[in-house]
Design a binder for these strands. Structure first.
Lengths: 214, 214
DNA sequence: ACCAAAGCTAATGTATACAATTTACATGGG
DNA sequence: CCCATGTAAATTGTATACATTAGCTTTGGT
C-alpha cells in the first residue's frame, strides 16, 4: 500500500489498539483525515481494510464504529487460526523445499537465542516468531489461505500472549517449532497439522490465563 | 455498498466471470470507470474488494491484472469452504433457535419444489440453496467466519456445479440438507460438521467431473 | 549495433469540491 | 403533551483535478 494510505491505516489501527478509540466510538472520515494529516481518500481505503479485518463495523447507514471484541470473539479467532494454520502446515509438509526448511531452522535458532538471554528479548522473539509462521504459510502455497490468515493473526494478541509466556513456555514453543520442522522434513502432513494445532491452542490458553476476560 | 460502487463491482466481476476480461488482462481504473459509467473513485473501491476476493492480483508496482484460477486453486477453495462451513455448521448446531430451524425447513422445501418440476428450476434452486447456507452461517454467530466464507463462496462456481447435478444428485443434496436439520434439531455438532463436510466435498467432485480442468 | 540515460507517456495515488443521504432538532398541529 | 413533518447540520458518496511514480521509447554516445 502507498504512503498516505499505509500511514492512515497504521495510525487508525493504533488508535483502536491503544484504547484511545474505545469500542463503540464513532469514527468519522474527516476527523481521521485531520488526525492522520492526509485527505479523506486514503483514510477511506484504510477504513475499508480495517472493516474487512473486523476492527471496525458499519452501522446500517454506513457510519463507522470501533468494534467490540469480547472473549467469545477472541476464542473464535484462536479456533479459526488453529484450523487454518494447521491446514497451512499440512500443505506445507508436502510442498516445502530445502531452502525454506533451512530458513525455518535459522529462524527458530534466532528465536531460541532471543529467549535464552537473562532477560528474554521479547521484541526479537516476536518478530522472528512471525517470520517462522510466515515461512510456513508461504510454503503452503495458497494465496487464499494466506490472505485469510493475514486478516486473523492479530499481532497485538500474539504480543500479549508471548509477554506472559514463562521461561518454560518459551522453551516449549521453541521445541514445538522444532517438531514442526521434523514433520516437514519427513513430509508428514498429519504430524505437522497436529503439532500446529497444539501450538496455537496452547497459545490460546496462555492468552486466556493472562487476560481472564480480556 | 453504495450505488456506483456496487455497480462498478458487479460490472467488473461480470467482465471477469464472463471471460470478456480473460486471466492476465491488465485492467486500468480509467478504462473501467469509462465502461461502468462512474468515476475512478468507486472503481477503486470495487477493485480493492475484488482484490481481497482474489479475482484480481496486483503487480509489484500496483498494476492490476485478472487472476488466473487453475484447478489447484479451485480444489483449495472447496477444501477451505468445506472446512469453514463445517465449522459453521458445528457452531450452529448448539446455537440455532427454533425460528431459524423453521426457516431452514422452509428453504429446503422450496429447494425441493424447484428440483421436483419436470424441468428443474435452477435459478430458484440456487437462490434458495444460498438462503439455506446463509441461515446456517448466520446461526453460527461468528462475523469473522461469515466474512471469510463470503469471500470464498463463488456463486458462479456453485452455479456450474448445480447445473450439472443429475436428478438423483439434486435429491441427494436435498436429503443432506434434511440430515443437517436433524443434526441441528438434536444439537449434535459432530454430526452437523460431518454432514456439511460431505455435502461440500460431494459438490466439489460434481464440479470437477463437470469441468475436468476448468 | 548496443547500451545508457533522459524525457515522455500512462498509470496509480492524493486532495478537494460538490452531491446525496441521514440524523437530529425544532416547530407546529392534533 | 405527544407525534409528525420539515429543515439544518453532519457525514458519507462521487467526481475531477493535480501529484507522483513506474515503464517505455527515443536519442545520444561508444
Amino acid at each position: 500500500m502507498s504512503k498516505a494510505s499505509e500511514r492512515a491505516y497504521a495510525e487508525i489501527r493504533g488508535l483502536i489498539l491503544s484504547g484511545d478509540a474505545p469500542p463503540g466510538t464513532q469514527l468519522t472520515e474527516a476527523q481521521l483525515a485531520d488526525i492522520c494529516g492526509v485527505s479523506r481518500t486514503p483514510v477511506r481505503e484504510a477504513l475499508r481494510r480495517l472493516e474487512t479485518e473486523l476492527y471496525l463495523i458499519r452501522s446500517d447507514s454506513q457510519r463507522i464504529f470501533v468494534a467490540d471484541w469480547n472473549s467469545d470473539d477472541l476464542a473464535e479467532m484462536f479456533t479459526l487460526r488453529a484450523m487454518l494454520e494447521a491446514h497451512a502446515a499440512g500443505r506445507a509438509a508436502t510442498r516445502i523445499d530445502g531452502a525454506a526448511l533451512d530458513h525455518l531452522r535459522a529462524a527458530n535458532d534466532r528465536i531460541a537465542a532471543a529467549a535464552a538471554a537473562d532477560t528474554p528479548d521479547v521484541a526479537t522473539f516476536l518478530s522472528e516468531n512471525r517470520c517462522f509462521h510466515d515461512i510456513v504459510i508461504a510454503a503452503a502455497g495458497s494465496p487464499r489461505l494466506a490472505a485469510m490468515l493475514a486478516a486473523i493473526v492479530e499481532q497485538p494478541v500474539v504480543r500479549r500472549t508471548a509477554a506472559r509466556y514463562s521461561r518454560t513456555e518459551l522453551a516449549r514453543s521453541i521445541h514445538e517449532h522444532g517438531e514442526l520442522i521434523q514433520a516437514f522434513a519427513t513430509r508428514d502432513a498429519d504430524w505437522a497439522r497436529a503439532v500446529m494445532t497444539g501450538h496455537i491452542r496452547r497459545a490460546f490458553h496462555a492468552f486466556s490465563a493472562a487476560e481472564p476476560v480480556a
